[in-house]
Nucleic acid binder design. Structure first.
Lengths: 206, 206
DNA sequence: TTTTTTCTCCCCTTTTTCGGGGATTTTTAC
DNA sequence: GTAAAAATCCCCGAAAAAGGGGAGAAAAAA
């Protein structure tokens, strides 16, 4: 029984690399390689594939979104996430979208083959470094849900504008802006603007 | 005349990928492949190499540092930087350290061969996307040099502590902390703490 | 249509930051 | 050993933010 895989990565270099790594493994064949999400979807409509090796960073659609799409359209398909980063949010979001595993791009040949085999067999595969990240980093406080006005105010605050200046920009009273600021502090559970901005920047909210 | 190259990258996948991409090019031979800075240096002491394909992210030493080291030890060697990111600071720092070019890891076979040839011939090579970044993004204000005390204070500020609280932690007068804070604002050229923290977080200073 | 959320505005007081200085003592570097 | 840089502390006043409320209108959701 041969495992047919599809490689989705926008780096030709990486594609070639994976192909080279898997050359010796006769239980795995590379059914195809594509460099963007759209082509991946069309490819899968006309080809039988067992496992998709999916890069997180794609030009058109993020790997995470594509993963969800794939699992909805082809539920029996297994997805093995892949990226350079061992960022907690990436990994968990990938898994939430139905991925069966996650490897870093510095995997060895042996580990990659092992991962594909395991995923294909219906098991979960996380490489050692990745699972370490999952257990090591404490669950961060979830990012609160902000209203559109709050996001707007937050962005201006991070730019260094005062309540008065922001009020001018938004054509509202400075008191209103101050309310939003206070709500932001409360939602994020922080003591002052400095801590607020730190979290906002770290979470790419600005 | 054959160009001998050394590939320095900690991802076996990428190494295999480059080798595969360069297989057809008979004017280029891969003299060796190493996965860390230290091995790269020892390899170069006993092997003749024309061009080093150098990843920016290495486990032991950053590619940027290694680039400087290489150019000092082997001035005739050409370095072609390589990474996934088209971040201005990466690119410029690589060039400052004597790199002859910079390509993204999503280069095509043709472009990679072209780049190696050009670099080997003593010319500079920057791929289209990279040079676009260089001209498109305005020169960001360089990150000011901070004293150790300033870094310390900055970290506490970003955590949300007030001058008084920081003073307690550092066993100094709140007025001292305030001085540092003002110096930080001046050095970064920002109006208030919010903007200060934003830049600090964006530049990984905290 | 009713309920809930969001957006808006207001009060008061206290704390903190900011914008200008200036000055002394340690370190560090030459 | 001396000069430069860093760290320390101080003054004043004005501006801004924070803490802790309340409350009405508008929009979105149920």
């Amino acid at each position: 029984m041969v495992t047919r895989i599809l490689i989705v990565d926008d780096h030709p270099m990486v594609i070639e690399g994976i192909k080279a790594l898997l050359q010796q493994a006769e239980e795995i064949t590379v059914a195809g390689t594509v460099t963007d999400a759209f082509t991946a979807l069309t490819f899968l409509k006309s080809n039988e594939v067992d496992v998709v090796l999916l890069d997180i960073n794609l030009p058109d659609l993020s790997g995470i979104e594509l993963c969800g799409k794939l699992k909805r359209e082809f539920p029996r398909l297994k997805v093995l996430g892949m990226s350079t980063f061992k960022e907690r949010s990436y990994i968990t979001r990938m898994i939430e979208q139905g991925a069966s595993g996650y490897v870093l791009k510095n995997v060895s040949r042996e580990e990659l083959i092992q991962a594909i085999g395991q995923v294909c067999a219906g098991q979960m595969y996380l490489d050692a470094e990745v699972s370490q990240v999952l257990v090591a980093s404490p669950l961060p406080r979830p990012i609160p849900i902000l209203t559109s006005r709050e996001k707007e105010v937050l962005a201006w605050i991070a730019e260094g504008w005062t309540n008065n200046q922001i009020a001018d920009k938004l054509f509202v009273s400075p008191l209103t802006v101050d309310s939003h600021r206070k709500n932001l502090l409360a939602k994020f559970g922080v003591k002052n603007t400095a801590a607020l901005v730190k979290i906002a920047v770290q979470n790419q909210l600005v």
